[in-house]
Design a protein around this nucleic acid. Structure first.
Lengths: 235, 235
DNA sequence: GAGTGGTCTAGACCACTTT
DNA sequence: AAGTGGTCTAGACCACTCG
């Protein structure tokens, strides 16, 4: 009669409730203590079920804030000229973003300096920020820019997007030259910046952007929430 | 004196032992029961530590077989003409692969048929297999091929690689036309094919390969072990 | 301040792998 | 047959969030 009270059965019930839209009022799931009662499993077991559903992109976590019904995946073409903002709108999503820090620095990882063609000790810009869809943060980024190529970039950027700044202020059309995808887990600044749970899988996307002369002018390192995105590239 | 006996401390100790190469004889870690004693933590706690280290690519699991010291990440360019075999050798790794099934089928997902230009009810080939580095399986794949474009592909393939078959037998040079990266978790056939633990994060790579006339002749769906790979693309 | 998520303990049983 | 990994129970404490 009663089911086997295992992770699998808990998952199925939760899945049902999610599909049917019941129980899950608004967007937040009931607390774990309520759920363990509703599902007839213990806390650690429930946790497994929730973690599995997280992996299947049905739900997601905000650190210390609980579990939420997942939003659709974002279809992202990192090589496209289309900005995050525009792509989001095209997919019927509400984009937003913020900057956590904008610094003029004189040091960075050696390979960053080399790629940007910045001499040891010379200035470059480091900008950290996040991007969100429907008010849910989906990526954190660190961006490096050659200060010689784009003087006063920080001031010019304001609250606008990178693409806008490049085109409007420096009249440069940039294109993606190189891409890297590395499966990792959230930790450190990416974790804080996005409000992610440490240890949760994530994808690090590294992007070199170049100008018309094929000179690398910007390096982006983005950390995406594992379940919130899907990448595609046309060649 | 004794540390706080938390996940973090267990991780640090394990990390130490891994770095120094002690405790870890051969390639397999001691059993979980031994480790809980050595580290002074309980099983579920140890498990958290191990899972974290798995996420950081220091160790990996074989289903029901235990924990192993991780191998280096494979640097994989999915758009390159270079075959898996060749790329592996260039990175000083020992590649191997196997086929789990080779079928002539008359049905597949509608979008697969459409992309390959196979009419409803017509034949296509479905080939499932795996790839390994240093005798550790790192990906599982399902490949679909238009039977009209490459008659008798299954027979011609033998135990060789796809690239070899296309070039030698059909004298076609193929190139990657489209790529998709989707973070998922292991389940179903991919899980079995690779000996992965269900629920473990993985990356699904979808690849359309086309001939000189830009006609799609092959669709690859690969499921990669999360921690064993890093992708890059030059544009 | 109550409630909640994150973490941890100290056991247990089963299915599978290995010896 | 013994050992091991996978799973589950029934508690507990702490740090943080939220009302």
């Amino acid at each position: 009669m009663e089911n086997t009270s295992t992770v699998e059965s808990a998952k199925q019930k939760l899945n049902d409730w999610l599909d049917k839209g019941i129980i899950v009022s608004g967007n937040k799931l009931p607390s774990e203590r309520e759920l363990e009662e509703l599902l007839g499993v213990k806390r650690m077991t429930l946790r497994q079920a929730l973690l599995h559903l997280e992996g299947e992109s049905k739900i997601f976590r905000k650190d210390r804030r609980g579990w939420f019904v997942a939003l659709p995946r974002f279809n992202y073409n990192p090589s496209s000229a289309t900005s995050f903002k525009q792509a989001a709108i095209e997919q019927g999503r509400l984009p937003s973003w913020g900057y956590l820090s904008k610094e003029r620095v004189h040091a960075a990882a050696p390979n960053i300096l080399a790629l940007l063609g910045v001499k040891e000790g010379d200035a470059l810009y480091k900008i950290c920020g996040w991007g969100a869809l429907d008010n849910h943060k989906v990526f954190y980024h660190e961006t490096f820019i050659n200060a010689q190529v784009a003087p006063d970039f920080i001031e010019q950027l304001g609250e606008g997007s990178f693409a806008e700044a490049w085109e409007t202020i420096y009249s440069k059309k940039t294109h993606t030259k190189h891409l890297e995808f590395k499966p990792t887990r959230f930790s450190g600044s990416a974790c804080k910046g996005i409000g992610g749970t440490p240890g949760t899988p994530s994808i690090r996307v590294k992007k070199y952007r170049a100008d018309e002369a094929d000179k690398i002018v910007q390096i982006d390192i983005e950390y995406w929430r594992f379940e919130s995105v899907e990448f595609f590239i046309d060649l």
